[in-house]
Computed example of a mutant assay.
Amino acid sequence: MPSPTLSDVARAAGVSYATADRVINNRGNVAEKSSEKVRKAVAALGYVRNIAAANLSRGRVYRLAFLIPQGTNAFFERIHQHIILTAEHQQRECVTVEVIKVAAFAVEGLQESILALLERDIDGIAIVGLQSAALEAPLAELRTRGVAVVGLVSDLPQTSRAAYIGIDNIAAGRTAARTVGLSHGGNSGRVQTFVGSMEARDHAERLSGFREVLEADFPFIEVLDPIMTKDDALVLQAQTQELLSNPKLTALYNVGAGNSGLIRALQKAKGKRPFCVVHELVAHSRQALLERHIDLVIDQRPDVEINRAFTVLRALIDEKDLPPMPDLVPTIYVRDNLPADTLTDKMKAQDT
């Protein structure tokens, strides 16, 4: 039996096709009595709105914006490239995308960028978030205006967004701690952690998870107070070079970015270096694994995150239920299981 059409709904409700269309697609200017007739006909017939057809008939364009940190962070450059590649793939589906760079860990800068979007015609926004009450009012205003808002990689205040797309960062920190603990083979040690900013929820959660596991299961390993770096590679390099003179230091864990500086310092290390765990598989962390300057990379699979961000934003804009999606589980890389660098290969191919 064929699925009921909008014409069937209009006929059953005793209204014109145009009236049924206005009710189904929330265009307004329909008397409540007629609207109620259409709703009853929809329920009786089991009519399902064809969103793709409705969007096509209205010339619907999905206007999306991604707010990500600016600077020399290789991970967010990787995020940027995935956004561009996905946007190119979805051009035929009337999706337009703007990437807006915001100063890293700058609450005021992020607040200003969000306020600026209130003056724009935007349907959905994915934001690499910070935890600050200053963001709640502008985000609430965006949502009041019907803009879909999701947190990406690092979450926003939970009441200010419709969804979060990213890994469980507490679990990621716990994973890092487990590998550090096992690397000590039951011996005592000292671990130095590096944190970009405690206002970044992903950084704060990773550090929390890391401490939990070491304190509970490896109490003979001391976790030193974190060094704040703002994800600056030069800061990581200088701090690591100074730390390497301490023979009692047995491990390093960077919860954020700036790993190129940390790696440069480790490349110059004399003798046995500390066990080292970092996040995100990018060119320099891949090479450092191969050359044995670091031991383990925890990667959050940004290609999956970006694809999911597009899917979730479009569902929210269309007022559809979000599709079932499994939890994003980070991948642990050592020098023995590195995947092909497909994104880099694709970017090189585009340049030739």
Score class of each variant (00 low, 15 high):
A104T: 07
G28I: 02
Y164F: 13
Q237V: 02
V128N: 10
K320N: 14
V150M: 10
R308H: 11
P138V: 10
K37M: 10
A269K: 11
E291D: 11
L135E: 04
V312T: 14
T144V: 04
D8C: 10
G146C: 04
I125P: 00
D225Q: 14
A54R: 09
S183A: 09
A349L: 12
D155A: 11
T342R: 15
L6G: 05
P323S: 07
Q81D: 12
A315I: 02
A163E: 14
G59D: 07
G271S: 05
N187A: 14
G189L: 07
R120M: 09
A171C: 02
N55F: 03
Q81M: 12
V277T: 03
K270N: 12
K270Y: 12
S183E: 01
G151K: 11
A349V: 04
G196R: 04
T331V: 09
P323V: 03
K272V: 05
T342C: 11
T5E: 07
G271Q: 04
T144Y: 07
A13P: 01
D327F: 06
F105L: 08
G109D: 12
K248R: 14
L135D: 02
L142N: 08
R11E: 14
N307F: 10
M325Y: 15
V23P: 00
S3I: 03
S285R: 02
V99I: 15
E136Q: 14
V235C: 06
T175E: 01
V153L: 08
P69A: 07
V304E: 13
M325I: 11
T342M: 13
V277P: 01
A162I: 00
P330T: 00
I114E: 03
L45I: 03
S57F: 07
K40R: 15
M1G: 13
K40W: 07
G14Q: 09
S34K: 15
G181L: 02
R314E: 07
A13L: 08
F310I: 08
Y62K: 11
E242N: 13
R78M: 10
I227H: 12
R27M: 07
P2F: 13
K270H: 13
H184C: 06
A137T: 05
R314I: 03
D327C: 08
L252C: 05
L281D: 00
Y62D: 04
A43F: 11
V102C: 09
V153Q: 08
L110P: 03
S160H: 04
A106R: 15
I83T: 05
P324E: 11
S154F: 09
L207V: 01
A53E: 03
N73P: 00
A200Q: 05
H82Y: 11
I125M: 10
L290E: 10
G146I: 00
P339V: 02
D8H: 13
L338G: 03
A116R: 14
L56S: 03
Q158E: 13
I114M: 09
V180I: 12
G14Y: 10
F105H: 14
T72P: 02
Q192P: 03
V191P: 04
K248S: 15
T96Q: 15
V153G: 08
V38F: 11
